[in-house]
Amino acid sequence: MIEVRELSKHYGERLAINALNFSVKKGEVVGFLGPNGAGKSTTMKIITGYMAPSSGSVTVAGFDVFEDPIEVKRRIGYLPETPPVYHDMYVGDYLRFVANLKGCDRTRLTGLVNSALEKTGLQDVRGRLIGNLSKGFKQRVGLAQALVSDPEILILDEPTVGLDPKQVAEMRQLIRTLKGQHTIVLSTHILPEVQASCDKVIIINSGKIVAENSLEGLSKQMSSGGGHSISVRVRRNQEVIVRGLSSVPGVRATTNMGNFIEVQTDGDETTVERVAGYVVQQGAGLLELRVQALALEDIFIKLTSTETAH
């Protein structure tokens, strides 16, 4: 659906993004992840035809963004970082204006506006001035604006930024319900967001892609060879267990961390089983045993910090 080839953008001397390559398939939900200033917004702006790259190409649904910008824009709904809403317009009027601007079929206009209002839960505020709405509602109006033309592709630039925790949860729920109807690219620097809603993650740092994979694939890729660590909490005999565990096959090292024991293993599931068996067999009173898979957070920090270390 979206093909990005060797995409670069300079702002004067500064290189914002450097030779990006990736593709997004129809119906996928792709999370664009990176620290602030990594080039996420720049990439999204180029895909939407808002600005031109310094070099490289982008095709959306088979149309080149720079040869046929109109055709591309017709297929994209875009929510920028700041929702592009007019403070002196009513919610319903605004959505109708956007639908007109996107060239939607005149006869379907009212239906489209209503369904966008419904999807974003804005029916109750359709007659209110946008300027008087709270930030969370403005954000939702921004999303409704992206949805109103029922586009094939949705590009959401940090859709949950500045929302309160309840609104964040609602926004994620909303994105989940949109899954399957649209191809979605969303950018964020909040990791649970990606875990909550994306099929695929593209991690970008200092203008370069440092990882591109599915969530599971990514954790597998990062943990291969690294093994797992298990944290064990027991009621009694902690010292004895620490010493005893080091002789269990598959365990590489054990450390007494005070209120729990950290066990480094080879990552095999049978090792986990043997560790659990040993603790129970010793009658130490097992309180907790947790396998710490490499979380997205760790992957993210690992990838982005090694990259900046160069």
């Binding site: 109109i70 824009k73 592009p84």
Partner: peptide, 14 residues
């Protein structure tokens, strides 16, 4: 100033 320019520039209009 209000960033609504983004909407105009990403709409299918010239």
């Amino acid at each position: 100033r209000m960033r609504t320019y983004d909407l105009l520039l990403t709409s299918p209009i010239t």
